[in-house]
Amino acid sequence: MHLRGGIALIKKSMFSYMASRGFFWTLTFGWMMLPLIYMFVWIVAAGEGAISGFTKQDFITYYVFLIFINQLTYPTSHWTVGDQINAGTFSVWLLRPLPPIYEAISTDIAVKVVCLPFVFLFLIVVSLFFKFKLTIDATLVWLFILSLIMAQVLRFMVAYTLAIFALFVEKIHALLRTNDTLIFLLAGQVIPTVLLPDLIKGVSNFLPYRYMLGFPIELILGKLNSNQIITGLALQCIWIVVVILINRVIWKKGIKSYTAVGG
Protein backbone atom coordinates (compact mmCIF):
# COMPACT_ATOMS: atom_id res chain seq x y z
CA MET A 1 0.00 0.00 0.00
CA HIS A 2 1.44 3.32 -1.10
CA LEU A 3 -0.10 5.69 1.45
CA ARG A 4 2.14 8.69 0.70
CA GLY A 5 1.20 8.66 -2.98
CA GLY A 6 -2.50 8.16 -2.17
CA ILE A 7 -2.62 11.10 0.25
CA ALA A 8 -0.78 13.31 -2.24
CA LEU A 9 -3.33 12.42 -4.93
CA ILE A 10 -6.24 13.17 -2.57
CA LYS A 11 -4.76 16.60 -1.80
CA LYS A 12 -4.18 17.24 -5.50
CA SER A 13 -7.81 16.44 -6.34
CA MET A 14 -9.08 18.62 -3.49
CA PHE A 15 -7.02 21.59 -4.69
CA SER A 16 -8.26 20.93 -8.22
CA TYR A 17 -11.93 20.92 -7.20
CA MET A 18 -11.56 24.08 -5.21
CA ALA A 19 -9.78 25.80 -8.10
CA SER A 20 -12.81 25.53 -10.36
CA ARG A 21 -15.47 27.25 -8.29
CA GLY A 22 -18.37 26.86 -10.73
CA PHE A 23 -17.84 23.13 -11.06
CA PHE A 24 -17.39 22.77 -7.32
CA TRP A 25 -20.72 24.36 -6.37
CA THR A 26 -22.63 22.60 -9.13
CA LEU A 27 -21.20 19.29 -8.01
CA THR A 28 -21.89 19.95 -4.34
CA PHE A 29 -25.53 20.89 -4.71
CA GLY A 30 -26.32 19.20 -8.03
CA TRP A 31 -26.42 15.73 -6.51
CA MET A 32 -28.94 16.72 -3.89
CA MET A 33 -31.48 18.14 -6.30
CA LEU A 34 -32.89 14.92 -7.75
CA PRO A 35 -33.50 13.10 -4.44
CA LEU A 36 -35.02 16.30 -3.09
CA ILE A 37 -37.48 16.42 -5.98
CA TYR A 38 -38.50 12.79 -5.32
CA MET A 39 -38.95 13.57 -1.67
CA PHE A 40 -41.41 16.35 -2.57
CA VAL A 41 -43.24 14.06 -5.02
CA TRP A 42 -43.69 11.31 -2.42
CA ILE A 43 -44.67 13.77 0.33
CA VAL A 44 -47.47 15.04 -1.89
CA ALA A 45 -48.43 11.49 -2.96
CA ALA A 46 -48.59 10.24 0.62
CA GLY A 47 -50.67 13.20 1.78
CA GLU A 48 -51.92 12.58 5.31
CA GLY A 49 -52.16 8.80 4.77
CA ALA A 50 -49.57 6.16 3.92
CA ILE A 51 -48.29 4.29 0.83
CA SER A 52 -47.56 0.63 1.62
CA GLY A 53 -46.77 1.60 5.20
CA PHE A 54 -44.68 4.68 4.25
CA THR A 55 -46.08 7.86 5.78
CA LYS A 56 -45.15 11.39 4.82
CA GLN A 57 -42.73 11.45 7.77
CA ASP A 58 -41.16 8.14 6.59
CA PHE A 59 -40.49 9.61 3.13
CA ILE A 60 -38.85 12.68 4.66
CA THR A 61 -36.59 10.51 6.81
CA TYR A 62 -35.86 8.15 3.93
CA TYR A 63 -34.83 10.88 1.51
CA VAL A 64 -32.81 12.86 4.06
CA PHE A 65 -30.78 9.69 4.60
CA LEU A 66 -30.69 9.02 0.88
CA ILE A 67 -29.18 12.43 0.13
CA PHE A 68 -26.52 11.80 2.77
CA ILE A 69 -25.71 8.22 1.70
CA ASN A 70 -25.91 9.00 -2.01
CA GLN A 71 -23.37 11.74 -1.51
CA LEU A 72 -21.11 9.35 0.39
CA THR A 73 -21.35 6.46 -2.05
CA TYR A 74 -21.62 8.20 -5.44
CA PRO A 75 -18.41 7.67 -7.41
CA THR A 76 -17.33 10.40 -9.82
CA SER A 77 -14.04 9.02 -10.98
CA HIS A 78 -15.42 6.38 -13.38
CA TRP A 79 -16.35 9.06 -15.90
CA THR A 80 -12.81 10.42 -15.78
CA VAL A 81 -11.24 6.95 -15.97
CA GLY A 82 -13.30 6.09 -19.07
CA ASP A 83 -12.44 9.39 -20.74
CA GLN A 84 -8.74 9.10 -19.91
CA ILE A 85 -8.54 5.59 -21.37
CA ASN A 86 -10.39 6.56 -24.55
CA ALA A 87 -8.25 9.67 -25.00
CA GLY A 88 -4.98 7.85 -24.31
CA THR A 89 -4.07 10.16 -21.40
CA PHE A 90 -4.46 7.11 -19.15
CA SER A 91 -0.86 6.38 -20.21
CA VAL A 92 0.32 9.00 -17.71
CA TRP A 93 -1.34 7.01 -14.87
CA LEU A 94 0.14 3.75 -16.16
CA LEU A 95 3.66 5.12 -16.08
CA ARG A 96 3.48 5.97 -12.38
CA PRO A 97 4.80 3.51 -9.82
CA LEU A 98 1.38 3.07 -8.23
CA PRO A 99 -1.72 1.34 -9.58
CA PRO A 100 -4.09 3.59 -11.59
CA ILE A 101 -6.96 2.73 -9.21
CA TYR A 102 -5.25 5.00 -6.65
CA GLU A 103 -6.04 8.00 -8.82
CA ALA A 104 -9.73 6.99 -9.00
CA ILE A 105 -10.05 6.27 -5.26
CA SER A 106 -8.23 9.48 -4.35
CA THR A 107 -10.46 11.59 -6.59
CA ASP A 108 -13.56 10.10 -4.95
CA ILE A 109 -12.28 10.57 -1.41
CA ALA A 110 -11.31 14.15 -2.22
CA VAL A 111 -14.69 15.08 -3.64
CA LYS A 112 -16.44 13.60 -0.60
CA VAL A 113 -14.24 15.40 1.91
CA VAL A 114 -14.76 18.68 0.10
CA CYS A 115 -18.52 18.31 -0.32
CA LEU A 116 -19.43 16.80 3.05
CA PRO A 117 -19.59 20.01 5.14
CA PHE A 118 -22.11 21.43 2.68
CA VAL A 119 -24.15 18.24 2.73
CA PHE A 120 -24.40 18.43 6.52
CA LEU A 121 -25.40 22.07 6.39
CA PHE A 122 -28.01 21.32 3.76
CA LEU A 123 -29.40 18.36 5.71
CA ILE A 124 -29.67 20.40 8.91
CA VAL A 125 -31.69 23.04 7.07
CA VAL A 126 -33.98 20.41 5.46
CA SER A 127 -34.44 18.58 8.77
CA LEU A 128 -35.39 21.75 10.62
CA PHE A 129 -37.72 22.83 7.84
CA PHE A 130 -39.58 19.49 7.72
CA LYS A 131 -39.42 18.82 11.48
CA PHE A 132 -37.36 15.69 10.92
CA LYS A 133 -37.76 13.11 13.72
CA LEU A 134 -35.92 9.84 14.14
CA THR A 135 -35.39 7.27 16.86
CA ILE A 136 -32.62 4.84 16.06
CA ASP A 137 -31.93 1.52 17.73
CA ALA A 138 -28.32 1.77 18.98
CA THR A 139 -27.38 -1.76 17.79
CA LEU A 140 -28.49 -0.87 14.27
CA VAL A 141 -25.92 1.94 14.09
CA TRP A 142 -22.97 -0.48 13.91
CA LEU A 143 -24.67 -2.62 11.31
CA PHE A 144 -25.53 0.54 9.39
CA ILE A 145 -21.89 1.70 9.40
CA LEU A 146 -20.79 -1.73 8.18
CA SER A 147 -23.39 -1.77 5.41
CA LEU A 148 -22.52 1.81 4.46
CA ILE A 149 -18.83 0.97 4.02
CA MET A 150 -19.71 -2.08 1.92
CA ALA A 151 -22.19 -0.02 -0.13
CA GLN A 152 -19.43 2.47 -0.81
CA VAL A 153 -16.93 -0.20 -1.88
CA LEU A 154 -19.50 -2.00 -4.04
CA ARG A 155 -20.74 1.13 -5.81
CA PHE A 156 -17.20 2.31 -6.50
CA MET A 157 -15.97 -1.07 -7.72
CA VAL A 158 -18.93 -1.59 -10.07
CA ALA A 159 -18.42 1.87 -11.59
CA TYR A 160 -14.65 1.48 -11.87
CA THR A 161 -14.96 -1.98 -13.39
CA LEU A 162 -17.38 -0.69 -16.02
CA ALA A 163 -15.05 2.25 -16.69
CA ILE A 164 -12.09 0.02 -17.48
CA PHE A 165 -14.17 -1.62 -20.21
CA ALA A 166 -12.91 1.42 -22.10
CA LEU A 167 -9.72 -0.58 -22.54
CA PHE A 168 -11.70 -2.64 -25.08
CA VAL A 169 -14.23 -0.20 -26.51
CA GLU A 170 -13.81 3.24 -28.00
CA LYS A 171 -16.76 4.88 -26.29
CA ILE A 172 -17.80 4.10 -22.75
CA HIS A 173 -20.35 6.76 -21.77
CA ALA A 174 -23.44 4.76 -22.77
CA LEU A 175 -22.42 1.88 -20.49
CA LEU A 176 -21.74 4.20 -17.55
CA ARG A 177 -25.03 5.99 -18.09
CA THR A 178 -26.90 2.66 -18.15
CA ASN A 179 -25.31 1.83 -14.82
CA ASP A 180 -26.43 5.16 -13.35
CA THR A 181 -29.95 4.59 -14.67
CA LEU A 182 -30.13 1.14 -13.08
CA ILE A 183 -28.98 2.62 -9.77
CA PHE A 184 -31.59 5.31 -10.15
CA LEU A 185 -34.33 2.70 -10.67
CA LEU A 186 -33.25 -0.25 -8.56
CA ALA A 187 -31.16 1.22 -5.76
CA GLY A 188 -34.00 3.13 -4.15
CA GLN A 189 -33.57 6.63 -5.57
CA VAL A 190 -36.79 7.11 -7.45
CA ILE A 191 -38.73 5.02 -4.92
CA PRO A 192 -37.70 3.03 -1.83
CA THR A 193 -37.04 -0.52 -3.05
CA VAL A 194 -39.53 -1.97 -0.54
CA LEU A 195 -42.24 -0.09 -2.42
CA LEU A 196 -41.30 -1.47 -5.84
CA PRO A 197 -43.75 -3.85 -7.58
CA ASP A 198 -43.17 -7.46 -6.40
CA LEU A 199 -41.45 -8.70 -9.57
CA ILE A 200 -39.01 -5.79 -9.77
CA LYS A 201 -38.50 -5.90 -6.01
CA GLY A 202 -37.54 -9.60 -6.35
CA VAL A 203 -35.03 -8.75 -9.07
CA SER A 204 -33.63 -5.80 -7.16
CA ASN A 205 -33.07 -7.99 -4.11
CA PHE A 206 -30.55 -10.06 -6.06
CA LEU A 207 -28.87 -7.42 -8.19
CA PRO A 208 -26.08 -5.35 -6.61
CA TYR A 209 -27.83 -1.96 -7.00
CA ARG A 210 -30.02 -2.07 -3.88
CA TYR A 211 -26.92 -2.81 -1.80
CA MET A 212 -25.22 0.35 -2.99
CA LEU A 213 -27.81 2.74 -1.59
CA GLY A 214 -31.28 1.57 -0.53
CA PHE A 215 -30.25 -1.26 1.78
CA PRO A 216 -28.29 0.82 4.36
CA ILE A 217 -31.15 3.34 4.50
CA GLU A 218 -33.81 0.67 5.03
CA LEU A 219 -31.55 -0.86 7.68
CA ILE A 220 -31.07 2.31 9.74
CA LEU A 221 -34.75 3.22 9.48
CA GLY A 222 -35.64 -0.12 11.08
CA LYS A 223 -37.62 -1.32 8.05
CA LEU A 224 -35.81 -4.70 7.92
CA ASN A 225 -36.05 -7.73 10.20
CA SER A 226 -32.91 -9.55 11.38
CA ASN A 227 -33.17 -12.15 8.60
CA GLN A 228 -33.33 -9.49 5.92
CA ILE A 229 -30.38 -7.67 7.49
CA ILE A 230 -28.18 -10.80 7.54
CA THR A 231 -29.14 -11.71 3.95
CA GLY A 232 -28.48 -8.15 2.85
CA LEU A 233 -25.04 -7.95 4.46
CA ALA A 234 -24.14 -11.38 3.01
CA LEU A 235 -25.24 -10.29 -0.47
CA GLN A 236 -23.17 -7.10 -0.16
CA CYS A 237 -20.11 -9.25 0.67
CA ILE A 238 -20.75 -11.67 -2.18
CA TRP A 239 -21.23 -8.89 -4.73
CA ILE A 240 -18.04 -7.14 -3.63
CA VAL A 241 -16.04 -10.35 -4.10
CA VAL A 242 -17.69 -11.07 -7.47
CA VAL A 243 -17.09 -7.53 -8.77
CA ILE A 244 -13.45 -7.52 -7.62
CA LEU A 245 -12.87 -10.84 -9.40
CA ILE A 246 -14.52 -9.55 -12.59
CA ASN A 247 -12.44 -6.39 -12.27
CA ARG A 248 -9.20 -8.42 -12.13
CA VAL A 249 -10.13 -10.40 -15.24
CA ILE A 250 -11.11 -7.30 -17.23
CA TRP A 251 -7.96 -5.46 -16.13
CA LYS A 252 -5.64 -8.31 -17.10
CA LYS A 253 -7.22 -8.76 -20.51
CA GLY A 254 -7.86 -5.05 -21.10
CA ILE A 255 -4.37 -3.82 -20.34
CA LYS A 256 -3.03 -6.17 -23.01
CA SER A 257 -5.29 -4.66 -25.61
CA TYR A 258 -4.77 -1.05 -24.48
CA THR A 259 -3.51 0.84 -27.48
CA ALA A 260 -2.39 4.07 -25.75
CA VAL A 261 -3.82 6.15 -28.59
CA GLY A 262 -2.23 9.43 -29.57
CA GLY A 263 1.34 10.55 -29.74
Partner: peptide
Protein backbone atom coordinates in the same frame (compact mmCIF):
# COMPACT_ATOMS: atom_id res chain seq x y z
CA UNK B 1 0.40 14.39 -22.76
CA UNK B 2 0.96 16.03 -19.44
CA UNK B 3 2.06 14.82 -16.02
CA UNK B 4 1.15 18.15 -14.52
CA UNK B 5 -2.31 18.60 -13.08
CA UNK B 6 -4.14 21.27 -14.98
CA UNK B 7 -5.87 23.05 -12.09
CA UNK B 8 -3.19 23.21 -9.44
Amino acid sequence: KTQLSWDI
